[in-house]
């Protein structure tokens, strides 16, 4: 640590450096001690100590050690006054140091890093996401982590999809979670993000992956519409179970509610867990349904979170 005594006049330190000013006095014998009379803002006073000198003679000198930290770049003055504690206005001597606090010299490494630091430019792996495998290009479901365009189709490889191709025929998920809907006369096509709108058209709202709020929901988490139908009745026949909006009512599964009926106490509001496959009926296979086809001939739940796999 740097030390500055009374013979020096300049204090040159780097920002962040701690140093001592050591001043001799005969405070014990004379009562005169060095008081800190003016301290600039670029310094913080950390400690004051009295250190005896080597002499054991009565009235020997004492070193007063003032410890400072340089906290800001500046040029300023540091002043001490020699006075008695009971006569503070009567300073018999002053000692002024010219203080120069300069910035730390940066290393070459820091210097080079500064101009292209991470708060200035995007990380490379954000710009060039790596696709670790390139087989099986078309992955319709899952959690993909990268997207490759090609062959006229939105080929989602790996990663979280972030958008939807505006393709009437082949609603293919391109980039991520759909966030907005393009109003289109013929098709309600979701593009880039969570859909918030719906098609005014009776035509098919083509949304494949996402959380649509629109009519004609094919796959996804259906949300209720004002005229949503929640069938609670027993179907007359196996083809008559059609859920348009809202929580799908399925034929088979574990009952959530039981409808009392004179002829039949079967339960029809179900959370399906596993089912037999039957192509003409509302079929859920292994899982919690997250969407249902509108068409009663094709009421096949396709995308869900598989729970059980055993056929019973």
């Amino acid at each position: 640590m740097k030390e500055f005594n009374s013979f020096e006049e300049k204090v040159a330190v780097k920002k962040g450096e701690v140093f001592d000013v050591v001043l001799e006095s005969q405070v014990v014998s004379t009562g005169y001690a060095w008081a800190l009379s003016s301290m600039p803002n670029c310094l913080n006073l950390l400690e004051v100590a009295y250190v005896s000198t080597s002499s054991s003679v009565a009235g020997a000198k004492v070193n007063q050690v003032y410890r400072f930290a340089a906290v800001a770049e500046a040029e300023a003055c540091l002043e001490f006054s020699l006075c008695r504690a009971w006569e503070p206005l009567n300073a018999v001597q002053k000692k002024v140091y010219h203080v120069n606090v300069s910035e730390q010299e940066s290393s070459l490494e820091d210097d080079l890093k500064f101009s292209i630091s991470k708060d200035k430019f995007l990380p490379t792996d954000v710009v060039n996401p790596k696709v670790t495998r390139e087989q099986s290009p078309v992955i319709p479901y899952g959690v993909p982590i990268g997207v490759v365009e090609g062959n006229g189709q939105c080929i989602l490889k790996y990663g979280v999809p972030q958008g939807l191709a505006k393709n009437n025929e082949n609603c293919q998920l391109k980039y991520g979670i759909p966030a907005s809907i393009v109003e289109d006369e013929n098709n309600c096509v979701v593009e880039y993000g969570i859909p918030l709108g719906k098609s005014n058209s009776d035509e098919e709202c083509v949304l494949k992956y996402g959380a649509p709020l629109a009519t004609n929901l094919l796959y996804g988490v259906p949300c209720a519409k004002e005229d949503a139908v929640y069938p609670l009745y027993k179907a007359a026949d196996s083809n008559d179970i059609v859920v348009v909006y809202g929580v799908p009512t399925l034929k088979y599964g574990i009952a959530d509610a039981t409808i009392a009926n004179a002829s039949n106490t079967d339960s029809y509001c179900y959370t399906p867990h596993e089912f037999e496959e039957n192509e003409n009926n509302c079929v859920v296979k292994y899982g919690v349904p997250t969407g249902i086809a509108k068409d009663d001939n094709d009421c096949i739940l396709k995308y869900g979170a598989p729970v059980l796999k055993d056929n019973k």
Binding site: L108, E109, D111, L112, S115, I116, K120, F121
Partner: peptide, 30 residues
């Protein structure tokens, strides 16, 4: 290109440095 400009500034700084050991140390660390 903003990135090109930043890299070129760094290259310019390096033109004044001839200490191979120092450069190797920094290069390897990077």
């Amino acid at each position: 290109c903003s990135y090109n400009v930043a890299i070129k500034k760094n290259i310019k700084k390096l033109e004044n440095i001839n200490d191979i050991n120092k450069l190797m140390g920094v290069g390897k660390k990077f």
